[in-house]
């Protein structure tokens, strides 16, 4: 459940296609190639074994979703029950509600995070004193590097009913807000605190794009009498367009990831109705509750759907922006 959104887009020049060599040629060619390339194969061995065991190994466990799994009996001896685990899941309102909860929280996060990062990078770009610019960057990046466990502790302290945030609200004449225990507010607490943690680092990509824009374009716009606002609207934003589309597309591939680390550490049974997401449900039922097979059924569906979403988003990213991860 790590976040993998920090890679910058890579735009490859088209053309230069290399003639493809067939891998499985005649045995003699294979031996010839092996003689030349064996050191490279040897280098791959440790990582290959680790990945095979620990990344591909668990995929085998997915068959458990179709069994009435019994830890004492293990895979081989557990009876097959077909789709029984799935049928049970979809009869559970507690599971059904995690789907809209997940989508609402994660889509709101993506939209608000993108907007906040773009706006902040545009404003940061207007700071011309380079010392100040670096200083501001340094400060806003910090939360990104701190774990949600620690930040959850910070949030609990800040947002408690007698915490500083509520004291501030009261001093302004408002009413206490139950940020973490009111089901109608909890999702927004998650969304905004995630934006708070990530928007600063989200600017890295956008700032890199803005600084790569040719200054001559702005100079000629100034000569034509374009105001600052006009320059941003008609030059900077259109030139950032492809990157914004690309980042949003890649984020959509991760849409089932509504932030397990954050929500697990901040939610409580009072807010399950709006705050329980697929990942926290899976964890509670499957691991804490010991219902491995049911948890596995959730996990299988989640893995398949997110694989489809990620493949689609990588495909569109390639078609739209010529983005290639590998």
């Amino acid at each position: 459940m790590g976040s993998a959104t920090t890679n910058l887009p890579q735009v490859q020049p088209p053309g230069n296609k290399v003639k493809k060599e067939r891998y499985f040629g005649s045995p003699i060619r294979i031996i010839k190639r092996l003689r030349r390339e064996w050191p490279l194969h040897l280098l791959m061995v440790p990582a290959f074994i680790v990945t095979l065991i620990f990344s591909y190994g668990p995929m085998y466990g997915l068959i458990m979703a179709f069994q009435d799994f019994n830890p004492a009996a293990s895979f081989a001896n557990s009876p097959w029950v077909g789709l029984e685990n799935f049928r049970w899941l979809f009869s559970q309102p507690a599971f059904i509600r995690t789907i809209p909860n997940t989508l609402f929280i994660s889509i709101s996060k993506i939209v608000l995070m993108t907007l906040a990062s773009i706006i902040f990078s545009l404003m940061l770009n207007e700071v011309r004193v380079s010392f100040c610019k670096r200083f501001f960057q340094t400060i806003v990046y910090i939360p990104h590097f701190i774990s949600w466990v620690i930040l959850a502790g910070v949030m609990q302290t800040l947002l408690a009913s007698d915490g500083v945030v509520n004291q501030f609200i009261i001093s302004l004449g408002g009413d206490r807000v139950a940020f973490l225990t009111d089901p109608s507010i909890f999702p927004w607490t998650m969304i905004w605190s995630d934006v708070w943690k990530g928007f600063g680092f989200g600017t890295v990509v956008y700032l890199a794009t803005i600084t790569s824009i040719d200054p001559e374009i702005y100079e000629s716009a100034v000569i034509d009498g374009a105001s600052k606002f006009r320059q941003i609207w008609s030059i900077t934003l259109p030139l950032m367009g492809p990157i914004i589309v690309l980042m949003a597309t890649l984020a959509m591939g991760n849409v089932l990831n509504a932030g397990f680390d954050q929500i697990y550490n901040l939610y409580s049974p009072v807010v399950y109705s709006t705050g329980d997401i697929i990942d926290t449900y899976l964890f509670r039922i499957g691991l804490e509750g010991g219902r491995f097979a049911v948890g596995m059924a959730v996990g299988l569906m989640r893995s398949v759907v997110s694989m489809i979403l990620m493949s689609l988003s990588l495909f569109f990213a390639y078609r739209v922006a010529n983005y290639r991860l590998f």
Binding site: Y60, L287, M296, G299, M307
Partner: peptide, 8 residues
Amino acid sequence: IFGGGLIP
């Protein structure tokens, strides 16, 4: 892109 998940 694809993983077995936490339980397996």
